[in-house]
Amino acid sequence: MEIRMNLDVMMAKRKITSGELAERIGITQANLSILKTGKAKAIRFSTLMALCHELQCQPGDLLEFHDDV
């Protein structure tokens, strides 16, 4: 059971690079990498809001619940 981040998919759809997105939402590339690789333990609303704003998507497009047993 986990929440997966579809950030890389959305970034590919919007044709935006990690460096560009990190700069636009004001986080480091290292932190963006943590989000992309699913190592993050939590995400702030402010970060999620900035991601949705820059990628022009909904939170549900970025986060996905998997009920794997």
Binding site: N31, L32, I34, L35, A40, K41, A42, I43, R44, T47
Partner: peptide, 8 residues
């Protein structure tokens, strides 16, 4: 701290 460090 670990949790805080991994909160983006």
């Amino acid at each position: 701290k670990s949790e805080l460090d991994l909160t983006i």
